[in-house]
């Protein structure tokens, strides 16, 4: 505990007892502090994923694949065995892992550039082969790592550094709904779109991640959890404003909820 923490956090000894603990940082996250900008949804999803892995007791059975993009360093934070993949190739790398270690739980963690632009082929084909993977897709509609260029998922009219007059769909194409696209494939078992802009949505996202991993445990096929997220720095907004952007602009175009749900038997 640092000095600041000691001074500012007087601990109520009658409440702060292990039996009354309702939330703490999951031990599956490493000690490393997130490099993400304040308010970034990436870290929220990292945290949720590690909560689920911890709760399911699969830390030793899980292998993750980090993408290229803002979350390239995911392996510094997620306390499971990880591989860092070339840009867009996470689903291929994950296929390689899963095929030789089918008993393990394998996930990829990818942004919209990695998954829906440069890695579209890898994503579509892994999905179509019905690879038993959980693909976590963070859609914030913009390129974060390279600072604010247009993503395939950027909204129509959205101003980015490479669409300075707003995305013109006639020349720059339409925002890509990758989840809907993949949901059509027979190898795909579960597709859902969630968000992390409110506490309620965070809860639902966690549940979705849990479902994805549980389906994988049963080898039911390809699972995709899309998380509509924010990018305060590149949207040039405060974190709160960026979450409002998510609620008012992103979610209307990328509606939340399950897109492909397994039939209940």
């Amino acid at each position: 505990m640092s000095e600041l923490n000691e001074i500012m956090n007087p601990i109520k000894e009658n409440i702060c007892l292990p039996e009354f603990l309702v939330y703490e940082r999951p031990d599956t996250l490493t000690e490393q502090e997130f490099h993400y900008c304040p308010g970034c949804g990436h870290s929220t999803v990292h945290k949720l994923l590690m909560e689920v892995v911890s709760e399911m007791g699969i830390v030793g059975d899980t292998i993750g694949v980090a993408p290229v993009g803002c979350s390239v360093f995911a392996y510094h934070y997620l306390g499971v065995d990880m591989q860092q993949a070339a840009h867009g190739r996470a689903c291929a790398v994950a296929t390689g892992i899963k095929r030789v270690m089918p008993e393990k739980i394998v996930f990829t963690y990818q942004g919209d550039g990695d998954l829906a632009a440069i890695g579209t082929a890898e994503t579509v084909h892994a999905a179509n082969r019905g690879e038993n993977l959980l693909v976590i897709f963070i859609n914030n509609g913009i390129y974060g790592m390279t600072s604010g260029q247009m993503a395939p998922t950027s909204l129509e009219g959205m101003v980015t550094t490479t669409s300075p007059y707003g995305r013109d769909v006639l020349t720059q194409g339409y925002p890509l709904k990758i989840s809907e696209l993949l949901a059509h494939l027979p190898g795909v078992y579960y597709v859902t779109r969630q968000a992390v802009n409110t506490a309620g949505n965070v809860r639902k996202t966690k549940k979705a991640l849990q479902r994805g991993l549980e389906y994988q445990k049963k080898n039911l096929g390809f699972c995709l959890v899309e998380v509509v997220s924010n990018c305060p720095s590149n949207l040039k907004m405060t974190p709160l404003e960026s979450n409002e952007f998510v609620a008012n602009q992103m979610i209307p175009f990328y509606p939340l909820g399950d897109i492909k749900v397994p039939e209940v038997k």
Binding site: A92, T95, I97, M101
Partner: peptide, 20 residues
């Protein structure tokens, strides 16, 4: 034995499996 969708994908599958 897996037929990949491209050589790009194949070599990255190799990366993943070799990493194990």
């Amino acid at each position: 034995v897996l037929q990949a969708e491209s050589e790009v994908s194949a070599i990255n599958m190799i990366y993943g499996a070799a990493g194990c």
